[in-house]
Write a protein that binds this DNA or RNA. Structure first.
Lengths: 334, 334
DNA sequence: CTGAAAGCGCTAACAG
DNA sequence: CTGTTAGCGCTTTCAG
């Protein structure tokens, strides 16, 4: 195995000391051009690879970043993880990805394990904040999507969910639709709460009354497995013989509503307008392109990585709340 | 920072030597119950975390596995990466995830970087095999999805794409449809090739003639961005006034065809049958549930992790080709 | 410009 | 049952 060569072997082979080899390999100066050439040549010939573990140990540093995420098979999360990973790699870090399934116990175990001097910092996507607090970590952490209500120093990056909720609702009202919102069963999340707040605040401002939020007894990931509930609610709404406007908590729910509506031959957007949230691919692949509030995932990722990078370099824990603008994407459903 | 305590600090605090602490921490026996209790207590009180980097360095081992994947925002890949990651974690490994975008240069850089004693092995999903060969790695590698034609020892895990192609085609023919296949522009991949072979072989056996493969000038990921080509092909086929059966290279393409067909009011499955491949979520969320060949992603992942684990433990490079059975899932489109 | 030596935190002989 | 010690591969003073 040529791979097992150490810096000492290279030193021996080149007839110099290990420190010289190290200096050459790290471009630390204080060596002659001739030795440099020689060492580099020998290192290359032998396929020398520096042992990053040893280097990290010596430098008391790590080139790993832990990315904690509920589930990368969720497209929205996958995009963010992917972007973060690629940005991290471009600045010399590697991403250790951990799927927690929103299981707080598992999440805790991941974070503990990664804290064992393995990672330089964390990017934590959509977490339950409470589990983190107990670990009294000193590593920099950037939270994405869900903002934990920690008083401590922390960085959070998320879309302007509140404004998104408002814009979607206003748009529905402006197109003369009677606004309703469809949400799913979900653990209390700041993002969802914010979208709902946006919706409610517009209703108040416009003096629209009544309970206009329909809560589906399913999660967003399973919304397609049983459409009967949506069908029932839609029947209720259609009876009113007014143009209906539905703000769906996310694109999956919007797509499910669209599917039911089309099977009922409801005219979209004439009789029913739908606005989703997230702008994931389903809003393009659905039978009709779905109007939605787009989250700028690449901006989220780059802001998160930048903030983390800043912490890492300055070696301080900064406190910052970064809000990423959202955008209404007008397509066919509203 | 309590985190910075080392084993030596714990030793000092407990009034024992480092080796005793090490033995206790690793359950290596040869210590009294009393010292064990004491050390564990002190370690806990001080929030001691063993430095895994140092441990790995000393043991000449790594608890990282590199997962190389084109793109985790592709649902099929995401599922596999997620399953692998979770299985790896359950046996004590952490996954370093690398998105290569099918860029051979980037892929090479990732693999080189990870080879620097950082990872114990690789899971490489859907790669261009040629780039690997040059790196003469000694680490165990499991290939998923795409089987590189390396003569060397290597492990590959993939679905039975050939049989999948055959089953889909036979099913179409048995339901009295005239079989055609829709493929996309893609780099030469063994998986795609196998599905096509399956299709072709059935045609030969059934004495069905003519060029029946329509090649779309797009990639699967972009197939929805311009449906005109599909529309055109569908027009051509429908003119024949026979029941048409389309085997789509994957579910995304199937969903695009379905979308176009529905907008043309073509009766499905009476006039047109569609069978997809992969069984990703779009086949459930589409306007009509799509009949498809299901790839058992969890089986793929577990076989891959098992094989890798075997290599890691026995410290040998085994050679094995694992083929995962596929399954026809009958839904509404065929 | 170069080398010797210390030591990052840990494990594993070996000696007692 | 416990301690001493060497050393994993590397970087980095400190001397020369």
């Amino acid at each position: 195995m040529k791979n097992n060569l150490s810096i000492r072997d290279i030193a021996k082979l080149s007839g110099v000391s290990v420190s010289t080899v190290s200096r050459v390999l790290n471009n630390n100066g204080r060596y002659s051009e001739a030795t440099k050439e020689k060492i580099l040549k020998i290192a290359k010939e032998n396929g020398y690879r520096p042992n990053s573990l040893a280097r990290n140990l010596r430098k008391q540093a790590s080139t790993f970043i832990g990315i904690i995420v509920p589930d990368i098979s969720n497209e929205f999360f996958a995009k963010i993880v992917k972007d973060c990973e690629q940005l991290l790699f471009s600045i010399g870090y590697l991403a250790i990805v951990c799927n927690t399934e929103r299981n707080p116990e598992l999440e805790k175990r991941y974070i503990e394990k990664l804290s064992n001097h393995m990672v330089a910092g964390f990017i934590i996507i959509s977490t339950n904040a409470t589990t983190i607090r107990n670990l009294n970590l000193t590593l920099p952490i950037v939270y994405i999507d869900r903002t934990p209500n920690l008083g401590e120093n922390s960085i959070s990056v998320s879309s302007d969910n509140y404004l998104g909720g408002k814009i979607a609702t206003k748009y529905l009202i402006r197109s003369n639709a009677d606004p309703y919102m469809f949400i799913t069963k979900t653990i209390k999340q700041s993002t969802t709460e914010d979208r709902i707040s946006g919706f409610k605040d517009v209703l108040i401002k416009e003096n629209i009354e009544g309970n206009r939020i329909f809560s589906l007894n399913t999660t967003s990931d399973c919304v397609f497995s049983d459409l009967r509930e949506i069908r029932k609610y839609l029947d209720t709404l259609i009876e009113k013989r007014k143009k209906i406007g539905i703000f769906a908590i996310n694109d999956k729910v919007a797509a499910a509503i669209l599917k039911v509506a089309m099977s009922k031959k409801i005219k979209i957007p004439e009789e029913l307008s739908i606005v989703g949230f997230d702008d994931i691919s389903i809003s393009k692949t659905a039978a009709m392109p779905i109007t939605t509030i787009s989250q700028n995932t690449s901006s989220i990722s780059s802001q998160a990585v930048n903030a983390l990078f800043e912490c890492l370099n300055k070696n301080i824990q900064i406190s910052r709340k970064i809000v990423i603008p959202i955008e209404l994407i007008k397509r066919a459903t509203a």
